[in-house]
Design a binder for these strands. Structure first.
Length: 253
DNA sequence: GTTGAGCGTT
């Protein structure tokens, strides 16, 4: 009763799905229920979680019974700060069965949009057109494309932290930033209160940090060489290990 | 204990 998503989809025949993005990873369906239920009758709330960690992915699906209520919730809850984070509420474009959705309502059949009431959500922007363009082609299964991208994203998401970007063009990056939010936009690097005096090259992605003395060794280099099946007994038959790791305690122990 | 583009389960 309280927990949504525990069971399969109850009935998505006459329900409107709303996509809630930008929510915190700690936000649960129970937390969103009172918020969305205040604006209408919430049929079900589902928050996709990770299969491995089980943590929320950062977005949830709120299903409403009526479109007017859903629309109101989108207008009222869109941009609302929840748990210190602004959540973006918008109509879902895709359904659970990869079905097409218009204004949150699942359309089993691919009907042509007459253009009656589509300019109701100005938040969709050109993104809708972009996706639609791909669907129009129908040269390939978009479902697979989506899953493939998702998969890459999952792994890339973890690796992204270490590596900023492989080598994407400025255009690509700019397109993404522009389509998402403008909060990332910075007025000017010189506008900063602290001049980049300390930073040798703020524009540089990273400092090469070339050290003339490679110290004793680089563990990273050894990573690709071998995993060292026996890291503990990797002590070479020399005095290298002895000189750098006397291990006085080990002697006593 | 962390992260932040995006579209979903029994």
């Amino acid at each position: 009763m309280s927990h949504f998503g525990r069971t399969g989809p109850p009935d998505i025949t006459d329900t409107y799905s709303l996509l809630v993005l930008n929510i915190t990873f700690r936000t649960t369906a129970d937390d969103l229920y009172p918020l969305f239920d205040k604006y209408g009758k919430v049929v079900d709330i589902f928050i996709p979680r990770d299969r491995r960690t089980g943590e929320s992915r950062g977005f949830a699906f709120v299903r409403y019974k009526y479109a007017d209520e859903a629309q109101k919730a989108v207008d009222r809850l869109d941009g609302r700060v929840v748990d210190g984070r602004e959540m973006a509420v918008q109509f879902a474009k895709y359904g659970p069965n990869a079905e097409r959705i218009q204004q949150g309502r699942i359309i089993e059949k691919v009907s042509r949009i007459k253009g009656s009431s589509r300019s109701r959500s100005p938040r969709r922007r050109y993104r809708d057109d972009h996706y639609r363009d791909r669907e129009y082609r129908k040269s390939r299964s978009r479902s697979v494309d989506r899953y493939e991208r998702d998969r890459h994203k999952r792994r890339d998401r973890d690796y992204r932290r270490r590596s900023r970007s492989h080598s994407l063009s400025p255009d690509y990056d700019r397109d993404r930033g522009r389509g998402r939010d403008k909060k990332h936009y910075r007025r000017s690097p010189f506008d900063s209160a602290s001049p980049p005096r300390r930073s040798p090259s703020p524009y540089r992605k990273e400092s090469p940090r070339r050290s003339l003395s490679p110290k004793k060794g680089s563990p990273e280099k050894r990573s690709h060489i071998e995993r060292s099946p026996t890291p503990r007994s990797r002590s070479p038959p020399g005095r290298a290990i002895d000189s750098r790791s006397p291990s006085p305690r080990a002697d006593e122990e």
